[in-house]
C-alpha cells in the first residue's frame, strides 16, 4: 500500500491519542507494516482541540505528520472545523452526528453516526467512545484487518475492561459498515 494518513480529532480527554496508538500498533506490530503515531494538543488536560495522527506505509515513514489526510475522525465541531481543511477529496470523514452538525465542503465521503451516544447507551460507558470510533475507522478504511485491530485493542486495555472494549470495537465496526452501505445505496 502507499502512504496512508489518518487523523483522530476531537477534544482533549476523549481518548483520541490512545485510539491513534492502538491503530498504529495494529499496523506496526500485528500487521507488519510501517507506522508512526504522533499527536498535537494544548496545555489543557481536558478540552481544547486535540488530534492524533497515524501514518501507515509499506516502507519506513519519513515525515511523521499528515500532509494530505486520507481519513479523518471528528468528534467535535471545533475539531472538524480546525482539522478538515487538508482532507483529500478522495478521503473519508467520519463524524459524530450529534456533535458535528455543520459539515465541511469537499468531495470526500462523509460517514456519520452517533459515536459517543453509542458508547454511552449501547455499549454502556462513554469512556469507550474512542474504541467505538477506532472500530469504525478500521471498518471504513481497511488499513488493518478487523482481527488485528481487535488484537491491538485487547493488548492495550486492562483485563477488567476487555469485554467492554471488545463490545465497543464491534459496535463501531458494525455501525460504520452499515452507515457506509446506506450511503453507497443513496449514491446509486
Amino acid at each position: 500500500m502507499a502512504r496512508y494518513e489518518l487523523r483522530f480529532s476531537g477534544a482533549g480527554g476523549q481518548g483520541l491519542i490512545t485510539a491513534g496508538i492502538i491503530l498504529a500498533e495494529a499496523a506496526s506490530i500485528h500487521e507488519g507494516k510501517q507506522a508512526v503515531q504522533s499527536q498535537s494538543y494544548g496545555p489543557e488536560a481536558r478540552g481544547g482541540a486535540s488530534k492524533s495522527e497515524v501514518i501507515i506505509d509499506d516502507v519506513p515513514v519519513d515525515y511523521p505528520k499528515a500532509t494530505k489526510v486520507d481519513a479523518l475522525l471528528a468528534l467535535t465541531q471545533e475539531a472538524c472545523d480546525k482539522y478538515s481543511a487538508d482532507l483529500k477529496d478522495t478521503g473519508i470523514l467520519l463524524y459524530d452526528t450529534d456533535l458535528v452538525t455543520k459539515l465541511p465542503e469537499g468531495g470526500f465521503k462523509k460517514v456519520g453516526f452517533n459515536i459517543i451516544n453509542t458508547a454511552k447507551n449501547e455499549v454502556g460507558r462513554e469512556i469507550v467512545a474512542n474504541i467505538v470510533a477506532l472500530g469504525a475507522m478500521i471498518a471504513l478504511t481497511g488499513v488493518v484487518s478487523r482481527e488485528n485491530g481487535l488484537k491491538a485493542v485487547l493488548s492495550r486495555v486492562p483485563e477488567a475492561f476487555l469485554e467492554l472494549n471488545e463490545k465497543a470495537y464491534a459496535a463501531g465496526f458494525e455501525k460504520a459498515t452499515a452507515a457506509a452501505k446506506y450511503l453507497s445505496l443513496l449514491h446509486i
Binding site: 510501517q34 507506522a35 508512526v36
Partner: peptide, 9 residues
C-alpha cells in the same frame, strides 16, 4: 518534541 512524543516500532 516531535521525536520525543511520537511512537514507532
Amino acid at each position: 518534541e516531535i521525536v520525543a512524543h511520537m511512537r514507532e516500532r
